[in-house]
């Protein structure tokens, strides 16, 4: 954008459609914990749902293992979040207020409910006690699961980062699909092949949806979406596509027969979904760093308004 036309600062000023090429919106200050949290939060949420349906249809192994996976992910998630805080000792301030305008506030409460429910259920399952309470907890966990899996998409969409905010229609869907795919893949790994049918199908189906949604999102974003072709967001995107695609294919072709193939395919899908979260995460940074993504669409908007 601002090229030092004749080497002088004045020439820069005359041509400037940004301030020395400096970003307008700030890059997020979130650390690697956050994309991993997106992954584990999604895994926890979708696993809770998977668990509930498995329970309903009486697939005990699938039910039990998805419960444990979900509960474990529900423990990892908050640890990641607290670790990312600048003031971890003030983590509980998240429950000072409840703000509908803040996906993070809503998400904190959902996570609190989901985590408490899934871990209560898992503990009771392991202890084999208080079945009615366990069932109630499972129900709560299943209800909290879908919001937990999808709110993170809205969380990042509810920012001024162009590539996130403009993708607000797709992101909860993308994150929900990715969560479902992760939960399916994790369960496909953890459960013997002959009881893992729903998990496998979920992993395969959700993977396809994920890949499709990402493509749709990038296309619809147009100019703003070009960051997905560049730098880290591009690399992670390609890794994600490759892993998810290969994993889903492996699961589809051999997952039913071979546990090893199921483990390999499931692992590839999980890796692909982690990479997806990273791709989206890094895209936000890249989008913030280049002021064009803020200025160009806004200028067009302003011009269109007249």
């Amino acid at each position: 954008m601002s090229h030092h036309h004749d080497g002088s600062i004045t020439a820069v000023g005359t041509q400037m459609d940004s301030y020395y090429g400096r970003p307008i919106v700030k890059e997020p200050v979130w650390q690697p914990e956050i994309p991993f949290y997106f992954f584990f939060g999604g895994l926890a949420g979708a696993s809770g749902v998977l668990h509930a349906f498995a329970g309903l249809v009486g697939n005990k192994t699938l039910a039990r293992r998805t419960l444990l996976i979900g509960a474990a992910a529900d423990i990892v998630g908050p640890i990641l979040l607290v670790s990312d805080l600048g003031r971890p000792e003030r983590a509980l301030n998240m429950f000072r207020v409840f703000k509908v305008t803040s996906p993070m506030s809503v998400g904190s409460w959902v996570l609190l409910v989901s985590g408490s429910a899934s871990n209560t259920a898992a503990a009771l399952e392991l202890m084999g006690k208080l079945k009615p309470v366990k069932v109630a907890a499972e129900f709560v966990s299943a209800l909290a699961g879908p919001p937990l899996a999808t709110y993170t998409g809205t969380l990042i969409a509810d920012t001024s980062i162009p590539v996130w905010h403009e993708a607000r229609h797709e992101l909860p869907w993308l994150f929900g699909a990715s969560a479902a795919s992760s939960a399916g893949a994790a369960a496909a790994i953890a459960v013997p092949v002959d009881e893992a049918g729903p998990a496998r199908r979920l992993a395969i189906g959700a993977s396809v949806v994920t890949l499709g949604l990402k493509e749709v999102m990038q296309r619809r974003l147009g100019f703003v979406g070009e960051v997905y072709e560049k730098e880290e967001a591009g690399s992670y995107g390609r890794i994600s596509k490759l892993c998810t695609g290969a994993g889903a294919a492996l699961l589809a072709l051999a997952g039913k027969r071979s546990r090893a193939a199921a483990v390999a395919g499931g692992s590839l899908v999980l890796a692909g979904e982690v990479a997806l979260r990273w791709s989206v995460f890094r895209a936000g940074f890249q989008s913030a760093r280049d002021p064009r993504y803020v200025v160009v669409p806004q200028r067009e908007r302003k011009a269109a308004r007249g």
């Binding site: 700030k26 997020p28 805080l85 600048g86 003031r87 003030r90 301030n93 000072r96 936000g284 913030a288």
Partner: peptide
């Protein structure tokens, strides 16, 4: 009060 969650930044 601020716990440094960083959400306001972006």
């Amino acid at each position: 009060i601020c716990n440094g969650c960083g959400y306001c930044v972006p």
